[in-house]
Computed example of a mutant assay.
Amino acid sequence: MNEMDIKPWLIRMSQGDEEAFRAVYDLTRDQAYGLIYYLAPNKQEVPDIMSEVYIELIKSLDNYEQGQKFSSWFNGLIIRQVRNWKRKSWLAKESYAGKGEGSIFRTASFGVGRSSIPPE
């Protein structure tokens, strides 16, 4: 990705130009995919994370300062989105693990063969 090539597209994209978004996507997708693939724990989730990255790019473009290097800013955005995805996945697993009859709190037996939690 050439920094000079992308800057005019970023300006147009910030003004709501859909063609500019497509151009920015085309210029950045290979780099984004490679970094997400490297960072993602589950490679099957890469397309979903890619979508999240570009949604966040649209939302956060106003925070990008033209003087800074876009690739560094974009890499930081990707890293944050992968981290958020991992956090959401972990929270979903933790939430799921605590439900149902398999929960340690429902099936644990303390003392003389008696559950400390009364059945529902």
Rank of each mutant, 00 (worst) to 15 (best):
S14T: 13
Q31N: 11
V24H: 02
G98D: 14
Y37K: 15
Q66Y: 13
G67Q: 15
R12Q: 14
D5L: 10
W9V: 07
M1K: 00
S72Y: 09
R83E: 07
Y25S: 06
Q66L: 14
K69E: 10
T28M: 11
V46W: 01
P119V: 00
E45N: 06
Y37P: 07
K7R: 14
V112Y: 02
I36Y: 01
K86I: 08
I49S: 00
W90P: 00
S60G: 14
I49F: 00
V24N: 02
K86L: 04
A32K: 07
G67Y: 12
E3T: 01
Q81T: 10
S115H: 10
M4C: 06
I55R: 04
R22W: 03
Y25F: 15
N84I: 01
E18C: 04
S71G: 07
D48P: 01
F74S: 09
A92G: 06
E101R: 01
D17W: 03
L61K: 12
V24L: 05
R22I: 07
G98C: 14
E94W: 13
I58C: 11
L61T: 07
R83I: 04
W9H: 14
I49G: 00
Y54L: 03
W73M: 09
F21L: 10
P118F: 05
Q15C: 08
G98V: 14
Q44H: 10
G76M: 12
M4I: 09
I78Y: 02
Y33K: 11
I6K: 05
Y64R: 10
E65F: 14
S109A: 13
N84E: 03
I104H: 09
I6F: 07
L10V: 13
V46P: 02
L77N: 04
K93G: 04
Y96E: 15
D30F: 08
N75E: 09
W85E: 00
S116H: 09
P41K: 10
I117W: 04
L57R: 01
L10D: 13
E94I: 15
P8G: 04
F74E: 06
Y96G: 08
G16K: 04
Q68Y: 15
L10N: 11
E52S: 04
I78R: 02
V53S: 01
D5G: 03
P41A: 09
A20R: 03
D30W: 05
